[in-house]
Amino acid sequence: MSGPATSDNGQVSARIELPDVEWRKVSPKLIIVDIIGSAVSALLALAASLAAFFFGLGIPALVLAVFFVMSVVTVLLVPRRVRAYGYQLREDDLVFRRGLLFQRVVSVPYGRMQLVDINRGPIARLVGLSDLKLVTAAASTGVAIPGLLEDDANQLRDRLVDLAESRRVGL
């Protein structure tokens, strides 16, 4: 699956790196939130798989078991995935990156932002984290920065709204 370029476990060295961008990381507390989220689905899959096995449904049990294993792998990858998130406010745009196996780097010009959204999930709220989502006129932009401390998220939102206002362009 993974080719020669990724053989040396160096997820950081193999990343696509933009020149002169210092990434700002998201809060490490996000690891807890994500692990809980993934673990719940893993346990549900396990329970369902066992139940199906108990009732003699072979194939559903197998599918659910595979799902369970995948969820466990996801849980194990959470710390690395959380470390992979990064964002930075450049002079005229916001850059955001995410992903381990499927890496994605997005640049959103401030003038193109249509709205900034802050979401808090139940677990994230317990540890005081927020997600910040940017919406442009393009549906495929898809920038959602998770794991921001509540104050940071609010500040960032106000900052982005100011920037968007001062650099407003048409559609």
Partner: peptide, 28 residues
């Protein structure tokens, strides 16, 4: 002048081949 945002993505296979994808986001 109409671009909304740009993304750069790379999958595992892409990393192995040292290739990547650029996607210019426009309205749908």
């Amino acid at each position: 002048a109409r671009l909304q945002s740009v993304s750069l993505t790379q999958s595992t296979v892409g990393r192995a081949l040292r290739v990547a994808t650029v996607h210019a986001h426009t309205v749908s």
